[in-house]
Amino acid sequence: MSFVAHLINGISLGSVYALIALGYTMVYGIAKMLNFAHGDVIMIGGYVVFVTASGLGINPLAAIIVSMAACTVLGVTIERVAYRPLRGASPLAVLITAIGVSYLLQNVALLVFGSDTKAFSNVVTLQNLELFDGQLIIKSVTIVTVIVSIIIMVGLTFFVKKTKIGRAMTAVSEDQGAAQLMGINVNGTIAVTFAIGSSLAAVAGVLLCSAYPSLTPYTGSMPGIKAFVAAVFGGIGSIPGAFIGGILLGVIENLSKAYISSQLADAIVFSILIIVLLVKPTGLLGKKALEKV
């Protein structure tokens, strides 16, 4: 039974990774850039919910919507101010800028909210699921996170494949110049991509902080890096790949912690990533060759 419990914990963590990885992969897939600040947008999303729900006492659901709106504005602003002027610059310049934005967000949060850990109250107040006479408890936040990440994965896939703006995104991802020759507003399309990625970050932030209820300015940093690994693992740019990569990463990490060593868990996770990339350089579901960053 303990194996099943560890597995479920892994899926719980993995579904948070999956949610974050979806944002990463979406932005990478369309704009061909790694938005390393994505994890920190999650942290900001967490603080917005903390301030509005715990501080101002508004309904948690409304707080999530406020947080999504705030993160969307933040994401679009970051794109407009930091990344758009670098369109056409070397990928390295963009990457360094993204890392800079990441530090900026962490330090702004440090300044505004302080370095102390905030106790985040779980917004998922549903009953936990008890199985086998209480021998196995699945937390409701786990169930909600898994369901939400599946819905978002399916929704995003549908959006990209079936809607006009989704197809414009595919066109932009393949060839920005040719997309412009079709009359597609490339900058606008990339802004929409950031808006979607950042509103997902807000959802991920809430669920991350609900499952692991402590919030600091560095809360988004490590899950952000892990989720990036998950996205590469699954095949960066691939929406189902991000989901599968996230879940697998969470499960591997948790099982390593449980059965091998909690200190070595991260090392094991990264070793597996390296092995996967050696065997299949494009990741599990990736099609195109991975671009150098």
Partner: peptide
């Protein structure tokens, strides 16, 4: 992108079709 709807189309050097879209979707683009 605002020039296209004014009535100007451009068939670029090297064709630059959208490889991952179907023929139909390319035409729709």
């Amino acid at each position: 992108y605002k020039i296209v709807p004014m009535g100007m189309a451009h068939v670029p050097e090297g064709r630059r079709v959208f490889a991952q879209l179907s023929v139909y979707d390319n035409l729709m683009m």
